[in-house]
Nucleic acid binder design. Structure first.
Lengths: 210, 210
DNA sequence: TATCTTTGACCGACCGTTCAATCAAAAACG
DNA sequence: CGTTTTTGATTGAACGGTCGGTCAAAGATA
């Protein structure tokens, strides 16, 4: 039998790191950062409390790792090939994809809503230079600003085809906040959305804002 | 000087209870339930930690008191005279009033979003029979269901005046989630809403959904 | 003095984190 | 191959610190 290579060890190590992340994501997103204890995470991951600290140097380090992993995953599945400006088709695809992501990454969004809304936790993370979040190599804040501009331009461009009392800022606010509201409800109370309406709402959003 | 009557004592007591509530509301809503300590609240209220427990029997009791007070205040300012069904004017007024309430009771809404989204805190409160929340004498859940029905009926009634592909359920979901999204953004990042757009958005909501 | 209010030292519980001790398995040895 | 040594993943008791909550005692009042 061949001896285990160090690569295989590394793989097992990664498996365990991943396992811890998965368990921690569930607990953080369900109970919040403060209310989740390292002991609970360890117990549910089937390891001892002490071992946690071989893989992550602190509770916050673990949280940052989870967030970074999810940001990467989301960025990957977004496959953003828009180099400059948004076409109506791209706009439509964005809506479809973002709802799919809400569905697939529900746990992560729960975490985001809980942690980001908890003053002190996020601020502390932002202060730590090891934990500056990046999306596709770009700092998170920069990426958000870039996306904001993309959509803002899209709604400004629509002004030409719409009536004279069309206000792009109001329209964009209406759109982004509707999305936000659906995200919130779907993430925390998905039972309110039978699959039928999930699809219908995507259609409606496209019809009203494309 | 006349001796203090017991009524006056009671009044002072109420003042202090109110002071504690105000300070606690600020801390709970800014930092969350777990991250807020009794010591901090006491210090900012200018009293000792021990005295807190003369007025509230626990940290959770204090939280429940705050929520109940705010629910009452909101219910009062709502002045709900709809006995049966909603007219378009009443619908319009509802939008105006709810935005006004977001503005006036921002701290309370922050608290609600933070605490209610924190599994464990709310569940624990709901289990305590002393802390079942009521709105205008009605249990909170019952009141929510009643309001839901009111709006649901409103959108169903609109079906007659709208086109054949008008779906009241989708329309109501669009409306309520847009409201939710604006609430969230306005409560946690009001700097994104210059007063100008605050008004414009109310108008737009009325135009689109009345 | 008698009564009521207020204090803050104190308690037990629990938290995140550390680290000496353990031990199965890999490596080295003969 | 059998035996010994080394390794490093794993454990869990222990630590320092903080929290919610208590209570004997000091202070205020009348």
């Amino acid at each position: 039998m061949s001896p285990r290579s160090s690569a295989q060890f590394e793989e097992m190590r990664e498996d365990k790191k991943t396992l811890i992340m998965n368990v921690a994501l569930e607990h953080f997103s369900d109970y919040g950062f403060h209310a989740t204890t390292i002991s609970h995470i360890a117990k549910h991951a089937g390891i001892s409390k002490g071992l946690m600290y071989n893989y992550y140097k602190s509770k916050e380090d673990l949280l940052a790792a989870i967030i970074n992993r999810s940001l990467d995953e989301i960025y990957q599945s977004f496959n953003p090939d828009h180099d400059s400006s948004l076409t109506p088709d791209e706009f439509e695809n964005f809506i479809k994809r973002i709802f799919a992501i809400f569905r697939e990454k529900r746990q992560f969004w729960k975490l985001i809503y809980r942690v980001m809304l908890q003053r002190g936790v996020y601020e502390h993370l932002s202060d730590d230079p090891d934990a500056t979040f990046t999306v596709g190599g770009m700092p998170l804040m920069e990426y958000s600003a870039y996306m904001g501009k993309l959509f803002s331009d899209y709604f400004i461009r629509k002004k030409e085809t719409e009536g004279p009392d069309y206000d792009p800022v109001t329209e964009m606010l209406m759109f982004s906040n509707t999305l936000k509201g659906f995200a919130l409800t779907y993430i925390f109370a998905p039972e309110q959305y039978p699959d039928l309406y999930f699809e219908k709402i995507i259609e409606t959003l496209i019809r009203k804002y494309r």
